[in-house]
Amino acid sequence: MLQPLVVGLGRSGSGLHLRTLIRLARRTADAGGPLVALPAVGCDPRAGALRVPGAPGEVTVVSTLDQALDQVDPAATVAHVCTPPRLRHEVVARLAGHGVRRLVVEKPLAASAAELDALVRLREQEGLDLAVVAHWTSSRLAGRLRRLIRGGRLGPLRRITVDQHKPRFLRSLTTDGHPTALDVEIPHSLGLALDLAGPAELRAARCWDLRLADRALPRLGGAHVELAHRSGVSTLLRSDLGAPVRQRSVVCEFEGGTATAHFPLSEDDDHAQLVVSPFGHGTACAPDGEGEAGHHVFRDDALTDFLECAYRNFASGTAGAANFPLACAATRLLCAAREHCAAVPQAPAGSR
């Protein structure tokens, strides 16, 4: 078994990684094939003030990385790096210096192209087995979209539109890990768009302020990113962080129809939906045959599936090779979008 070390216990580290790892440890142990060794070790400077998931004995929380490393065996550890992007290289370098070679790193990989280059060099020099969190691209829903694209039943793919909307007022006021709206939801959809339609160049990007009653938070209100893929597909990514409702949807427009994918909105539910609509046909329910026209609903606990796959691959030595190039490509596009937004006037408060 491999023991988790989670560095950074914010929303991602505690609310997603730790919670999912505990669930995965319990489930695999109950099934007779334990995969995750508990207690997981969590590291955050705010350790004394944090509430973390899990029963007694399932999580140990400390305030420094040195304290955390004293409690784990580097050869049997998987480090989850859930710090803000600007700290990723520093943390990975310290972990590597202590002999940790298996890492799960949150996206985006870095806050700048130079930092990404440094991380790529570090990975190669230290022989790190590094998996980048990509539960959107590894989800069952994304798998169905890929099969629709490859199968050609709706003709060639022409356009992708991704909408990721949610009200994010309180977190934007109380945390500083995401400097712009580009860093909140867009990294999910960038990787997915590249996975579905292939390499791309940035066509346009814009951010706008998050406006509250007494202030405006610069560039945190939302973002639009436009991509031109070498395959001829165009992509529009939209994220409104002042929206009154939540939405996580992907519309793939084909020559002969559309496929609308709805990702689960939060950890409160783990079901995805896919609506396949060939032109000239209805959308009567078709529970069998995912390529058929209709409205399909199915379980898709993507983060749990992603982490289980990563841990099994870590055990066999094959974890990070598959998705690292895609994560690097998505990070470079994100860096280009940041630079573009910094160089042009901000957009007015956004419409979708």
Rank of each mutant, 00 (worst) to 15 (best):
A181T: 05
D30L: 08
E106S: 01
E126K: 05
C335V: 08
Q71C: 01
L173Q: 13
S249M: 07
C43M: 07
A75Q: 14
V52C: 02
R332F: 09
L241N: 06
A336N: 13
V132C: 03
L35M: 09
T174V: 11
A205Q: 12
A343N: 05
V184C: 01
R94H: 12
Q67W: 09
G291N: 06
D129W: 08
L122W: 03
H271N: 00
R88F: 05
A93L: 11
H135K: 09
R352D: 14
G8Q: 11
V344Q: 15
D300R: 00
P264K: 09
D44W: 10
L2V: 04
D129V: 01
P4H: 12
Q164I: 10
V105W: 14
H188W: 15
A343Y: 09
A228K: 03
H178M: 06
R215Y: 05
R94Q: 09
G13H: 07
R46S: 02
T64E: 12
D268M: 00
R168G: 05
R238D: 14
A93E: 14
G151C: 10
R144N: 02
R121E: 11
P85S: 15
A142V: 01
E106L: 01
A181C: 08
G15D: 07
A213I: 11
L307E: 09
P187S: 13
D66V: 05
G13L: 00
D300N: 03
I149R: 10
R150N: 04
V100T: 13
E124S: 03
A216Y: 12
T175I: 08
S63A: 07
F324M: 00
E255Y: 05
H17M: 13
A337D: 10
D214E: 13
A134Q: 08
A343G: 03
A113P: 01
E126H: 06
C328V: 06
D30P: 10
T331C: 02
G33N: 10
I149V: 13
H188D: 15
S14K: 04
P218F: 12
S351F: 15
L122I: 02
L148W: 15
G320M: 02
L9G: 01
L116D: 01
L217F: 14
R332H: 00
L220W: 08
A110V: 05
D73E: 06
V36D: 15
A29G: 09
D30K: 14
G127C: 07
A31W: 11
V245N: 14
G151F: 13
A336S: 07
V59S: 00
A321P: 13
L333T: 00
